[in-house]
């Protein structure tokens, strides 16, 4: 089982040049927590179709003309790991199939890369950002109270610069967030059905 997991990354490594994949891995290890979204690792690619078992969830019954339910839910099972993801985010089954594959790619990335996975890094960046925002508002408050320090001011300027750079990526992050949020709050669940390699981490 252990061996199976360690050989796993090979199965769904992106089709592109390997060194790029390694490159991004190394980058991830050196910058433990990127301050800017520019340093985010690329979105993980879904595994090949031959490793996916797809099913469409719908009620029992005759189907066809006799029923007109809006059953657009798509469930995927990744055969090598047993990971199951489900999406019913949209009314379109075609769209849900794409979303489910993105979800599966993210779950596999989390399984393999753990704290260095894209999901983990995105949430780390978000946490940092929220903290810095809180800090800034505290500072603004203090500024109003008239106890501004010189050192702090420099720090602030630096941060503001960083903030602007991030601004452009903001929309992209929100898109990611939106997707995960919808998928978690109301329409797609991810169940980790017997992840065979959990004990290795």
């Amino acid at each position: 089982m252990l061996r199976q997991l360690s050989s796993l990354p090979l199965l769904f490594r992106p089709a592109g040049p390997l060194h790029r994949y390694h490159g991004s891995l190394i980058a991830r290890f050196t910058t433990t927590t990127p301050a800017s979204l520019k340093q985010l690792p690329p979105r993980p690619k879904p595994p090949p179709e031959s490793e996916i078992e797809e099913s469409f969830l719908k009620g029992s019954g005759p189907g066809g003309q006799k029923i007109n339910k809006t059953n657009s839910a798509v469930q995927l099972r990744h055969i090598p790991t047993g990971i199951v993801v489900k999406s019913q985010a949209t009314r379109s089954r075609s769209q849900n199939r794409k979303i489910a594959r993105e979800l599966l790619a993210a779950r596999l990335d989390e399984l393999i890369n753990g704290t260095q996975s894209r999901t983990a890094i995105v949430s780390e960046v978000k946490k940092k950002r929220a903290a810095s925002k809180a800090k800034k508002s505290r500072r603004k408050y203090r500024k109003l109270a008239g106890e501004k320090g010189r050192e702090e001011k420099n720090e602030e300027e630096e941060e503001e610069e960083g903030e602007e750079e991030e601004g452009q990526e903001e929309a992209r992050l929100h898109e990611v967030e939106g997707k995960t949020k919808t998928t978690e709050s109301n329409n797609a669940q991810q169940t980790q059905a017997t992840p065979q390699g959990n004990e290795t981490r």
């Binding site: 019954g61 005759p62 003309q65 006799k66 029923i67 007109n68 339910k69």
Partner: peptide, 11 residues
């Protein structure tokens, strides 16, 4: 008969 028996009401 199939229409009466097992066709959904909305249909």
């Amino acid at each position: 008969s199939g229409f009466r028996r097992d066709t959904a009401r909305a249909v």
